[in-house]
């Protein structure tokens, strides 16, 4: 039973499913705080559909993945090994990190270097919901201001203050996803 569960739930048609999923991920990162839909994969619990789809679209054998304790289950390890082949790693080496907000060790992730700010982690955060809004976002990708739901305010203000270094975040709940890149300014609503 567990074995077949680890083998199913991937993309039905990988090139086109990944293309549609990536467009949503691109729009999300380009327009911080705006909700997008991701429905292409059906991963096992506790992974959400949106987070599972994001992993299948972006992660592979070249991108070390940190699984937070909230998501470090044998079934999820098997599912990720079969569908993305992303090697699991310590937070310091992670290109992607996946888990609930409280379970992510933010201080240990790579934030890029002044020469190569792109060499930083992308965190995929699982939330209960992406509303109600508790923050106002501004910056590139936002015409005036954008309301958004964040798990915390101060951590993202500190992250923005380090620009161009910093991490970039995706927030997932069910089939919904929104992004918060380091370039975005954050204020409590």
């Amino acid at each position: 039973m567990a074995m077949t569960e680890a083998l199913s739930g991937g993309f039905a048609d990988a090139p086109t499913d990944a293309a549609r999923a990536f467009r949503a991920l691109l729009e999300a990162m380009a327009r911080p705080g705006r909700l997008q839909r991701l429905t292409q994969a059906t991963p096992p619990a506790p992974l959400s559909v949106a987070a599972g789809t994001a992993l299948l679209t972006l992660a592979d054998s070249t991108t070390p993945l940190f699984l937070a304790p909230s998501h470090d289950t044998p079934l999820l390890r098997d599912w990720i090994a079969f569908h993305c082949a992303a090697p699991l790693c310590a937070p310091e080496q992670a290109v992607f990190a996946l888990g609930r907000w409280e379970a992510l060790p933010l201080a240990r992730f790579a934030l890029g270097t002044p020469d190569y700010p792109d060499r930083s982690v992308t965190v995929i955060v699982e939330l209960e919901a992406l509303e109600p809004p508790n923050a106002l976002l501004s910056g590139p990708g936002i015409q005036t201001v954008q309301a958004a739901h964040l798990p915390e305010i101060a951590a993202f203000q500190a992250n923005h203050a380090r620009f161009p270094l910093g991490f970039d975040a995706y927030f997932c709940a069910g089939t919904r996803i929104a992004a918060l890149p380091r370039a975005t300014g954050v204020e409590a609503l």
Partner: peptide
């Protein structure tokens, strides 16, 4: 795609 997302972030 990973490069494009980092490019949008910075």
């Amino acid at each position: 795609r990973r490069a494009l997302l980092k490019a949008l972030a910075v």
